[in-house]
Amino acid sequence: MSKLFPKSANRLPLQILLYLFVLGGIAMAGINYYATNKWANVGYAPVQPVPYSHKLHAGQLGIDCRYCHSNVEKSGFANLPTAQTCMNCHSQVKADSPLLAVVRQSYETGAAVPWVQIHMTPDYVYFNHSVHVTRGISCVDCHGRIDQMEIVAQDKSLTMGFCLECHRAPEEHLRDLRDPAQTVTRLDWIHPGGEKGQADQGVKLIQANKIAPPTSCSGCHR
Protein backbone atom coordinates (compact mmCIF):
# COMPACT_ATOMS: atom_id res chain seq x y z
CA MET A 1 0.00 0.00 0.00
CA SER A 2 1.37 3.39 -0.96
CA LYS A 3 1.51 6.20 1.55
CA LEU A 4 -1.63 8.41 1.66
CA PHE A 5 0.12 11.42 3.20
CA PRO A 6 3.62 12.69 2.44
CA LYS A 7 6.03 13.09 5.35
CA SER A 8 5.54 16.86 5.42
CA ALA A 9 1.96 16.32 6.57
CA ASN A 10 3.37 15.66 10.03
CA ARG A 11 3.97 19.40 10.38
CA LEU A 12 0.47 20.35 9.23
CA PRO A 13 -1.38 20.42 12.56
CA LEU A 14 1.22 22.79 13.96
CA GLN A 15 1.11 24.98 10.86
CA ILE A 16 -2.69 25.15 10.94
CA LEU A 17 -2.60 26.07 14.59
CA LEU A 18 -0.08 28.82 13.86
CA TYR A 19 -2.21 30.08 11.00
CA LEU A 20 -5.30 30.20 13.21
CA PHE A 21 -3.34 32.30 15.69
CA VAL A 22 -2.33 34.72 12.92
CA LEU A 23 -5.90 34.83 11.63
CA GLY A 24 -7.17 35.49 15.14
CA GLY A 25 -4.67 38.29 15.52
CA ILE A 26 -5.76 39.87 12.27
CA ALA A 27 -9.43 39.59 13.27
CA MET A 28 -8.73 41.19 16.67
CA ALA A 29 -6.78 44.01 15.09
CA GLY A 30 -9.57 44.54 12.56
CA ILE A 31 -12.31 44.66 15.19
CA ASN A 32 -10.22 46.95 17.37
CA TYR A 33 -9.66 49.33 14.52
CA TYR A 34 -13.05 49.23 12.81
CA ALA A 35 -15.74 48.32 15.36
CA THR A 36 -15.74 51.74 17.03
CA ASN A 37 -17.19 55.19 16.48
CA LYS A 38 -13.68 56.38 15.71
CA TRP A 39 -14.02 54.66 12.38
CA ALA A 40 -17.79 54.37 11.97
CA ASN A 41 -18.77 57.98 12.81
CA VAL A 42 -15.75 60.27 12.63
CA GLY A 43 -15.63 61.94 9.23
CA TYR A 44 -19.38 61.71 8.57
CA ALA A 45 -20.14 64.65 6.28
CA PRO A 46 -23.54 64.19 4.58
CA VAL A 47 -24.70 66.22 1.60
CA GLN A 48 -26.79 69.11 2.97
CA PRO A 49 -29.76 70.68 1.14
CA VAL A 50 -27.98 74.06 1.12
CA PRO A 51 -24.20 74.28 0.57
CA TYR A 52 -23.83 76.32 3.78
CA SER A 53 -20.23 76.93 4.82
CA HIS A 54 -19.12 77.44 8.43
CA LYS A 55 -15.70 78.42 7.10
CA LEU A 56 -17.24 81.46 5.40
CA HIS A 57 -19.84 82.47 7.99
CA ALA A 58 -18.16 81.57 11.32
CA GLY A 59 -14.54 81.79 10.16
CA GLN A 60 -14.29 84.58 7.60
CA LEU A 61 -17.26 86.73 8.66
CA GLY A 62 -16.61 85.95 12.33
CA ILE A 63 -20.28 85.45 13.24
CA ASP A 64 -20.58 83.99 16.74
CA CYS A 65 -21.91 80.41 16.90
CA ARG A 66 -24.74 81.63 19.14
CA TYR A 67 -26.08 83.94 16.44
CA CYS A 68 -27.44 80.81 14.78
CA HIS A 69 -27.27 78.11 17.47
CA SER A 70 -29.00 80.54 19.78
CA ASN A 71 -30.28 78.08 22.41
CA VAL A 72 -26.98 76.38 23.08
CA GLU A 73 -26.52 78.23 26.40
CA LYS A 74 -30.13 77.89 27.49
CA SER A 75 -31.17 74.37 26.63
CA GLY A 76 -29.83 70.88 26.30
CA PHE A 77 -30.40 70.92 22.58
CA ALA A 78 -28.29 73.13 20.30
CA ASN A 79 -30.86 74.26 17.77
CA LEU A 80 -30.23 74.68 14.07
CA PRO A 81 -31.18 78.20 12.91
CA THR A 82 -34.58 79.13 11.52
CA ALA A 83 -34.83 80.23 7.90
CA GLN A 84 -35.44 83.76 9.16
CA THR A 85 -31.98 83.73 10.73
CA CYS A 86 -30.48 83.24 7.28
CA MET A 87 -32.85 85.81 5.76
CA ASN A 88 -31.63 88.47 8.24
CA CYS A 89 -28.70 88.82 5.87
CA HIS A 90 -29.76 86.96 2.75
CA SER A 91 -32.76 89.19 2.15
CA GLN A 92 -30.06 91.61 0.97
CA VAL A 93 -26.80 89.67 0.53
CA LYS A 94 -26.95 87.21 -2.43
CA ALA A 95 -30.71 87.63 -2.32
CA ASP A 96 -31.23 85.87 -5.67
CA SER A 97 -28.64 83.13 -5.29
CA PRO A 98 -29.99 79.81 -6.62
CA LEU A 99 -28.05 78.08 -3.82
CA LEU A 100 -30.40 79.69 -1.30
CA ALA A 101 -33.68 78.79 -3.03
CA VAL A 102 -34.55 76.20 -0.35
CA VAL A 103 -34.06 78.76 2.43
CA ARG A 104 -36.19 81.42 0.69
CA GLN A 105 -38.93 78.89 0.10
CA SER A 106 -38.82 77.83 3.74
CA TYR A 107 -39.03 81.47 4.85
CA GLU A 108 -42.07 82.10 2.68
CA THR A 109 -44.02 78.89 3.23
CA GLY A 110 -42.82 77.79 6.67
CA ALA A 111 -41.72 74.40 5.33
CA ALA A 112 -38.68 72.94 7.09
CA VAL A 113 -35.21 73.02 5.56
CA PRO A 114 -34.27 69.32 5.51
CA TRP A 115 -30.82 69.58 7.18
CA VAL A 116 -29.23 66.20 7.80
CA GLN A 117 -28.20 65.47 11.40
CA ILE A 118 -24.52 64.69 11.83
CA HIS A 119 -23.61 64.32 15.51
CA MET A 120 -25.67 61.85 17.47
CA THR A 121 -25.52 60.22 20.86
CA PRO A 122 -27.66 57.09 21.29
CA ASP A 123 -31.08 57.71 22.86
CA TYR A 124 -30.08 55.90 26.06
CA VAL A 125 -27.50 58.62 26.76
CA TYR A 126 -28.46 61.92 28.35
CA PHE A 127 -26.51 64.81 26.91
CA ASN A 128 -26.99 68.49 27.63
CA HIS A 129 -25.27 71.42 25.89
CA SER A 130 -26.02 74.18 28.36
CA VAL A 131 -24.37 72.49 31.36
CA HIS A 132 -21.15 72.17 29.38
CA VAL A 133 -21.13 75.53 27.64
CA THR A 134 -22.06 77.59 30.72
CA ARG A 135 -19.28 75.92 32.79
CA GLY A 136 -16.63 76.84 30.23
CA ILE A 137 -16.31 73.84 27.92
CA SER A 138 -15.73 75.08 24.38
CA CYS A 139 -17.44 73.77 21.26
CA VAL A 140 -14.00 72.89 19.90
CA ASP A 141 -13.51 70.15 22.53
CA CYS A 142 -16.39 68.12 21.12
CA HIS A 143 -16.82 69.38 17.55
CA GLY A 144 -13.32 70.31 16.37
CA ARG A 145 -12.52 73.35 14.26
CA ILE A 146 -16.00 73.90 12.84
CA ASP A 147 -14.96 77.41 11.80
CA GLN A 148 -12.52 75.88 9.30
CA MET A 149 -14.97 73.40 7.81
CA GLU A 150 -16.50 74.07 4.41
CA ILE A 151 -18.84 71.14 5.11
CA VAL A 152 -19.41 70.01 8.71
CA ALA A 153 -17.92 66.60 9.46
CA GLN A 154 -17.89 64.78 12.79
CA ASP A 155 -14.44 65.33 14.27
CA LYS A 156 -14.55 63.59 17.65
CA SER A 157 -15.71 60.03 18.36
CA LEU A 158 -18.28 60.95 21.08
CA THR A 159 -17.88 57.46 22.57
CA MET A 160 -18.33 56.81 26.27
CA GLY A 161 -14.56 56.77 26.65
CA PHE A 162 -14.33 60.20 25.06
CA CYS A 163 -16.88 61.68 27.48
CA LEU A 164 -15.26 60.04 30.52
CA GLU A 165 -11.75 61.14 29.61
CA CYS A 166 -12.85 64.74 30.16
CA HIS A 167 -15.19 64.05 33.05
CA ARG A 168 -12.25 62.56 34.94
CA ALA A 169 -9.93 65.49 34.17
CA PRO A 170 -12.00 68.55 33.25
CA GLU A 171 -9.20 70.95 34.28
CA GLU A 172 -7.51 70.32 30.93
CA HIS A 173 -10.46 71.96 29.15
CA LEU A 174 -12.16 74.48 31.44
CA ARG A 175 -12.16 78.10 30.31
CA ASP A 176 -12.55 81.16 32.50
CA LEU A 177 -15.76 82.76 31.27
CA ARG A 178 -15.03 86.11 32.95
CA ASP A 179 -12.30 86.69 30.33
CA PRO A 180 -13.90 87.65 26.98
CA ALA A 181 -10.92 86.20 25.08
CA GLN A 182 -11.82 82.76 26.41
CA THR A 183 -15.45 82.78 25.23
CA VAL A 184 -16.46 79.19 24.46
CA THR A 185 -17.27 80.08 20.86
CA ARG A 186 -13.69 81.19 20.15
CA LEU A 187 -12.42 77.94 18.73
CA ASP A 188 -8.80 79.01 18.24
CA TRP A 189 -8.12 79.97 21.86
CA ILE A 190 -5.51 77.97 23.73
CA HIS A 191 -4.11 78.88 27.13
CA PRO A 192 -1.03 81.08 26.68
CA GLY A 193 0.61 79.25 29.61
CA GLY A 194 0.50 75.96 27.72
CA GLU A 195 -0.71 72.74 29.29
CA LYS A 196 0.52 73.73 32.75
CA GLY A 197 -1.21 77.10 32.66
CA GLN A 198 -4.42 75.44 31.50
CA ALA A 199 -4.32 72.82 34.26
CA ASP A 200 -3.66 75.47 36.95
CA GLN A 201 -6.52 77.60 35.73
CA GLY A 202 -8.77 74.53 35.52
CA VAL A 203 -8.05 73.46 39.10
CA LYS A 204 -8.86 76.99 40.34
CA LEU A 205 -12.13 77.04 38.42
CA ILE A 206 -13.14 73.59 39.68
CA GLN A 207 -12.74 74.82 43.26
CA ALA A 208 -14.37 78.20 42.71
CA ASN A 209 -17.39 76.90 40.77
CA LYS A 210 -17.66 73.46 42.44
CA ILE A 211 -17.49 71.68 39.11
CA ALA A 212 -18.07 67.94 39.42
CA PRO A 213 -18.85 66.15 36.15
CA PRO A 214 -20.61 62.81 36.70
CA THR A 215 -18.55 59.66 36.29
CA SER A 216 -21.15 57.27 37.72
CA CYS A 217 -23.39 55.43 35.28
CA SER A 218 -26.59 57.17 36.31
CA GLY A 219 -25.14 60.58 35.42
CA CYS A 220 -25.38 59.86 31.71
CA HIS A 221 -27.69 56.83 31.57
CA ARG A 222 -30.73 58.11 33.45
Binding site: N41, G43, A45, M120, P122, D123
Partner: peptide
Protein backbone atom coordinates in the same frame (compact mmCIF):
# COMPACT_ATOMS: atom_id res chain seq x y z
CA UNK B 1 -13.27 49.90 4.51
CA UNK B 2 -10.79 52.78 4.46
CA UNK B 3 -9.04 54.37 7.42
CA UNK B 4 -10.26 56.19 10.53
CA UNK B 5 -11.15 59.82 9.90
CA UNK B 6 -11.86 59.45 6.17
CA UNK B 7 -14.68 61.69 4.97
CA UNK B 8 -17.83 59.86 3.87
CA UNK B 9 -21.36 60.84 2.82
CA UNK B 10 -23.43 57.70 3.44
CA UNK B 11 -25.10 57.33 6.88
CA UNK B 12 -22.76 55.72 9.45
CA UNK B 13 -22.74 51.93 9.55
CA UNK B 14 -24.70 50.43 12.47
CA UNK B 15 -24.24 46.69 12.88
CA UNK B 16 -26.14 46.48 16.16
CA UNK B 17 -28.68 49.31 16.54
CA UNK B 18 -29.04 48.48 20.27
CA UNK B 19 -31.53 51.05 21.58
CA UNK B 20 -29.89 53.96 19.79
CA UNK B 21 -33.13 55.08 18.16
CA UNK B 22 -36.07 55.07 20.52
Amino acid sequence: LGFRGDRFKHPPLELFPDMDHQ
